[in-house]
Design a protein around this nucleic acid. Structure first.
Lengths: 203, 203
DNA sequence: CCTTTTCTGTAGTGATCAATACACAAATAG
DNA sequence: CTATTTGTGTATTGATCACTACAGAAAAGG
């Protein structure tokens, strides 16, 4: 097939992983081509041959983030037995991922709401949709719990989901300011203290 | 006194206000000198004569933000009769300020945790301290309420304060994504649903 | 071998960045 | 008036930005 020509001298997936860490750490615009090529260990022509452009590389970095880190955060939402355990697991997994050693603090997708300046409209819209998807997924989990009789049928799933996603997004800011995993977990437990009040009566 | 020389042809306070809006909207690095001078209606030499440097202008813009917007958010903390009303008022005022028409969405100081890349260490530390100050102020309000017998004496004031500040910071992200004032207020009410659980037993 | 294809390294492109040199304008001091 | 001081407008500084032209290197096809 396409094995003609000089073979690539670097591992594409490995280089993308390094680029993801730079974008995650600095945001789109503040990550310079020099930052990227140095972290990836390649020259800029190799970067452009493999990824097309800075924004193309960013898009792939976001996809990689979603596939690796983001799925770990969302995992509990579909796996936990009860809706309460699902959301608590979501917040606890966030606390873990946001403070994992060797990784930038906070969530790359959440932070992109603030530091993805200069990115194209299409990529920007995709990132916004990814953040909105968190609310959708949690609301769906709440509605399925309500349909199963586990929770009150009259609850406002969207409002509750927005609240928990807001807490999780605030945890990204806290992580940026140096909050540790136990501190973020304490915040998550604080957020869960609202659970009974929110799910008992329709807000 | 110092009325010698050609008088300044623009209003310094007015120009600073315009610069604050640009920094608030775009962050430090993404706000270019062209953006700033166009918004302020002056040439770059006038900017440098009046404010010293881009970072000097940014520092003054942060001070102006603190004096105008930030005080409105923190007002309820010292004015409200009860600790609960103080914190609820803090979140409600945040919802209002974060979505005020004609102003950028979200809190300039909160967002600076993410978009103040490239700013000097001293300014960066000052901004971080301003964010930490929110936790300190709320914790102090909780402790005074506990000392007055209004709340349980064994509550973890720091943990509760961190939780509510995290919600407020998440509201800044939500505002960036287009959340309206009623939506943010609903989130604030959701956060207040945790109040009894948090203040009843020592976490 | 030679040709074709693909990638790498060097060395740059024009554009934009924050910041200024310099000449002139506009005020006060004497 | 002249001298001094301060601000403005033009035009530009070197540095850095994202990006690429070009020549040579390293592979497969014939």
């Amino acid at each position: 097939m396409s094995e003609r020509g000089r073979p690539r001298a670097f591992d594409r997936a490995e280089a993308l992983q390094k680029a993801m860490l730079v974008f995650w750490d600095k945001g789109y615009q503040a990550a310079s081509l020099t930052d990227l090529t140095e972290a990836m260990g390649i020259g800029s022509p190799s970067l452009y041959a493999a990824f097309g452009s800075k924004e193309g590389l960013y898009r792939e970095a976001v996809d990689l983030y979603e596939a690796s880190e983001s799925d770990e955060i969302a995992g509990p939402l579909s796996l936990a037995a009860t809706a309460r355990e699902a959301i608590e697991g979501y917040l606890m997994a966030s606390a873990a991922v946001f403070t994992r050693p060797g990784r930038p603090p906070g969530c790359m997708v959440v932070l992109s709401a603030v530091n993805a300046v200069g990115v194209g409209d299409e990529t920007s819209a995709k990132l916004r949709e990814m953040r909105a998807q968190s609310v959708t997924a949690i609301a769906a989990r709440l509605r399925s719990a309500a349909a199963a009789g586990e929770l009150d049928a009259g609850l406002d799933a969207e409002a509750i989901a927005s609240y928990y996603v807001t807490v999780q997004q605030g945890m990204s800011i806290q992580a940026r300011d140096g909050a540790t995993r136990p501190q973020l977990e304490a915040i998550a437990r604080g957020a869960m203290a609202a659970w009974e009040g929110l799910t008992r009566a329709a807000a």
